[in-house]
Simulated assay, not measured.
Amino acid sequence: MTKHKADKTPQMGFWERNRKSGGYLLQKKTKEIAVRIIRAILLFGMCFLILQPILTKISVSFMEEQDLYNAMVINIPEHFTTANYKLCAKFMDYAKSLLNTSIVSLSIAVLQITVCTLVGYGFARFEFPLKKFWFACVIMVIIIPPQTISTSLHLHFRYFDIFGLSKLIRGETINLRGSILPYYLMSAGCMGLKNGLYIFMIRQFFRNIPKELEEAAYVDGCGTLRTFVSIMLPDAKPILTSCFLFSFVWQWTDGFYSKMFLGNIKLLSTQLAVIADRMDAWMVNTMKVPGGASVGYSNCIVSTGTLMVIIPLLILYLFAQKGFVESLSSSGIKM
């Protein structure tokens, strides 16, 4: 009977509850709505800043030259064309450059993450002489831009020698310039692109894994290597996934190390850097335009080439989106 009466008790409306709370409920609701609106505006602004340049490049890439100088054409091309993509594919030797970039980026990323994982685990779990000094060197690798040591790298690999043995035996040093070997040597020595950052991230991750897991493995008879491979690496999958994707993407778009060490290999980043010059040469030699390509059309070709460089990365992200987001969230919690 009591339950039946309680069910028939009329529910107070919002304004009635607000009146009894002395206006507190209205203030709370107003603050919640204001926070939601501000958050939506900020998110929209951030998304617009990221997407607007890409959308503009997509629109421009389908325009003919006359549309670029037509004040009535803003975002939608009046003369739709795919000729810009064909020209970019020709100037960049796209198929070969794409294959080379995929092979180099994948191999470099695997090599860098392998050695950085070993170094990061060593910093997190082992004690050795001058540990703090060597970790300070890792931080310096993160802070100091690679351009500051470009001259030293050039001279070192131009006159490469190991303990003077080459000059002693052959009478001259080895010129490794123009070869891919120097970059692989640097990556194997944790001096590649962003390697200091990967070491730091992996070290922080391993430091937050309880040592009891390793101690239990040691009690069960596992050695250091087996414990690392069987126990630690499976737990480190999130951070390794994040670092691998970062390494792959940064190597894909890198221009500094690619120009310095991989100049003889056709890569998308290096081909994109000279696409405007090739466009001018094509206009002069093939189309017989004395002044070369106009500024607007050159920018159009560069925008189209940029899209062709990042499209494979966007496709990769679409397939790896779930694992990438999960790895970032997991590594962020543990770091």
Results as ranks from 00 to 15, higher is better:
236 A>V: 11
43 L>G: 03
89 A>Y: 12
45 G>T: 05
246 F>S: 01
17 R>S: 05
278 R>S: 12
302 V>T: 10
40 A>K: 06
77 P>Y: 01
296 G>S: 11
335 M>P: 00
2 T>I: 15
308 M>W: 05
268 L>C: 09
217 A>G: 09
225 L>S: 12
3 K>P: 01
151 T>W: 09
42 L>W: 01
296 G>K: 09
143 I>G: 13
219 V>L: 11
194 K>D: 03
329 S>T: 14
236 A>T: 15
299 N>D: 10
245 L>I: 14
120 G>A: 10
244 F>A: 08
217 A>C: 10
2 T>P: 00
314 L>C: 12
21 S>E: 11
329 S>F: 06
327 S>C: 08
203 R>H: 07
76 I>T: 08
81 T>F: 02
166 S>P: 01
30 T>L: 13
131 K>H: 00
135 F>H: 05
255 G>C: 05
85 Y>H: 11
122 G>P: 00
192 G>K: 13
271 Q>Y: 03
254 D>M: 11
285 N>E: 13
227 T>A: 04
183 Y>H: 10
166 S>R: 02
212 E>M: 12
246 F>L: 14
160 F>S: 06
324 F>Q: 04
167 K>W: 08
247 S>G: 01
335 M>D: 15
317 Y>A: 11
62 F>S: 09
238 P>K: 07
91 F>G: 04
130 L>A: 14
269 S>T: 15
208 N>M: 10
193 L>N: 05
309 V>S: 03
31 K>F: 05
204 Q>P: 07
249 V>D: 00
188 A>G: 14
276 A>M: 11
167 K>Q: 15
119 V>D: 03
250 W>R: 08
192 G>Q: 14
161 D>N: 10
22 G>N: 03
286 T>P: 00
136 A>D: 01
101 T>G: 06
104 V>N: 01
235 D>R: 02
53 P>K: 12
154 H>L: 15
194 K>Y: 05
335 M>C: 08
75 N>Q: 03
190 C>L: 09
158 R>Y: 10
285 N>T: 11
155 L>N: 10
145 P>R: 11
33 I>W: 05
165 L>A: 12
168 L>Y: 00
223 G>E: 05
145 P>L: 02
98 L>Q: 06
255 G>I: 14
16 E>N: 05
100 N>C: 04
310 I>V: 15
65 E>T: 14
218 Y>I: 06
172 E>I: 04
65 E>R: 13
162 I>K: 13
4 H>V: 13
272 L>T: 06
30 T>G: 09
46 M>A: 13
226 R>F: 00
229 V>L: 10
98 L>N: 07
61 S>K: 02
84 N>V: 03
147 Q>C: 00
280 D>K: 14
308 M>S: 02
129 P>E: 07
26 L>C: 01
244 F>C: 08
106 L>W: 04
296 G>F: 15
164 G>S: 10
252 W>G: 11
140 M>L: 15
55 L>M: 15
23 G>N: 02
302 V>S: 00
214 E>S: 09
150 S>Q: 12
41 I>M: 11
227 T>V: 01
112 Q>T: 15
172 E>Q: 14
253 T>W: 03
197 L>G: 02
270 T>G: 04
49 L>E: 01
28 K>P: 00
177 R>G: 02
178 G>L: 07
13 G>F: 11
